[in-house]
Simulated scan of single mutants.
Amino acid sequence: MNRALARAACVALLPLLGACSTLDSLNPFASKPGGPKMAELKAITASADTRVVWRDSVGKAGDYVLVPAVVGSSVYAVGRDGALTRFDNGRQVWRVKIGQTVSGGVGASERMVVVGTPKGEILAFNAADGAALWTSRATSEVLSPPVIAEDAVVVRSGDNRLAAFELADGKRRWVYQRPSTPLSVRVTAAPLVADRFVFAGFPGGKLVAVSLGNGAPMWEGAVAVPKGVTELDRVADITSVPVIDGREICAVAFQGRVACFDLGNGSLVWARELSSAAGLAIDSRYVYVSDDKGAVHALDRNSGASIWKQDRLFLRRLTAPLARRGLIVVADVQGVVHFLNREDGAFAARQTTDGSPVLAPLQANTDGVVVQTSNGSIYAIEMQ
């Protein structure tokens, strides 16, 4: 199992057991005496120019995965202690103290910023000045960034329910729930909204599309099918955000497969065995996946056939890839950001941050990528 989950997630056991535990003890690739070791980084010859344009800090994430939101030239970020900040081109525009712990965020648009709390509260703020707008409540703790759609805020709660709230006042519009599994991985991935659909992955390897208007299920696709004798063997959960390009949507499951579906009706286009808890990216030619052993794969967009594999980041607990400006970007457990050549996976550049793990998905901005570390540092890195 991927040790990134040990910081970002835990196994949700049956309620009777009353708790969740980290995955380190279940991870066959965890560092043990005489066992596999995390790959050491070797010097590279850079073929791309990257530089840190600006950096700042918003406070540590603690046990949560807090994701920055990029809207044009603005970056919104929050720390566990509730310091919510807007940066414009690296300049702090405002900072508000929410006054409580934040466990899910940030979701943002040109007008609104939204975060969630361990108590299940949804807190909305004015994007212009940080003024509080409304408060609502989900069915349980909020561990993923809320998503601001056309006229609603969509939230995934820790009990694997989706809910939509009215954009104007936070009134709850609908709740969607699938049957639960006996054992599942705690998910911090946001839902994805496109074409008036809400897409999300669930325990048991199901990718589901529901209506943004009323929460009615539209289609369901099997990214993975649970296998094995024990409940632990049968964990095959989608723990990352699906990706869309054109009329295709793709997702990947932990202990499962990567699969692509027709966006409109959910029919399977292709699938292949590959386990990932971190996630994937897509562009016009390839699908890119960070697997659970620290390898980055490029797969043919049309068939899923392997194009290249970069395996020199073994056990470095990578983030999902980000395809940007002809490069594939991933970050690791030591806060190192790696830039790979899109065509062959060769190392093209490298940037260091504050040395703490990068667990939050990388975010694209106008000139490159925005990174938030577990210690709360925000980096805007330009790619040329």
Rank of each mutant, 00 (worst) to 15 (best):
V243R: 03
S211I: 10
F125K: 02
T22N: 14
F339W: 03
R91W: 05
G294K: 11
K293Y: 09
T50F: 03
S284W: 04
I381A: 11
N302T: 11
W134A: 02
A164H: 03
G158K: 14
T319L: 10
V114H: 01
V337E: 07
V225W: 04
A163R: 01
P361Y: 11
V337Y: 06
I282V: 15
K293D: 12
E110D: 14
D233C: 00
V223F: 08
L17G: 04
Q334G: 14
V142R: 02
P179S: 12
V235C: 06
D129G: 10
R80P: 00
Y176K: 05
L280E: 04
A61S: 15
E231I: 03
T366G: 15
R173K: 13
A164D: 03
I122E: 00
V93A: 11
A138T: 09
A298P: 02
P191F: 05
A224D: 07
S275I: 08
C260F: 03
T373P: 02
L66M: 07
L84S: 12
T230E: 11
F261G: 02
G107M: 09
V229A: 11
N2F: 07
V175D: 07
M383V: 15
G201S: 12
F254N: 13
L66D: 09
N375R: 15
V142H: 00
F202G: 07
C10K: 13
V370S: 09
D88Q: 10
V358P: 08
R161K: 11
S374K: 04
V155C: 05
K32S: 13
N214R: 10
I244N: 02
L14H: 13
C10G: 12
D169A: 14
A4Y: 06
N27F: 01
V75L: 07
V229C: 00
P179A: 13
G130F: 02
Q363D: 02
E220T: 13
A305Q: 09
T101E: 15
Q177A: 15
L340K: 00
D344A: 01
S31D: 15
L192F: 11
V52T: 15
K60A: 15
A271H: 09
L274C: 04
V114T: 07
V185E: 10
A364N: 06
G256S: 11
F339M: 06
S57L: 02
S21I: 08
A124K: 00
L359M: 12
R257F: 10
T239Q: 12
A152H: 02
L212K: 01
E141N: 08
V115K: 00
V154A: 03
G79T: 05
V252D: 08
T139C: 00
Y288T: 00
S21F: 13
D332Q: 06
A277T: 05
V336L: 05
D24V: 06
A46E: 14
F165R: 06
E121D: 15
A149N: 04
T22Q: 13
V229R: 12
E110Y: 03
A43H: 07
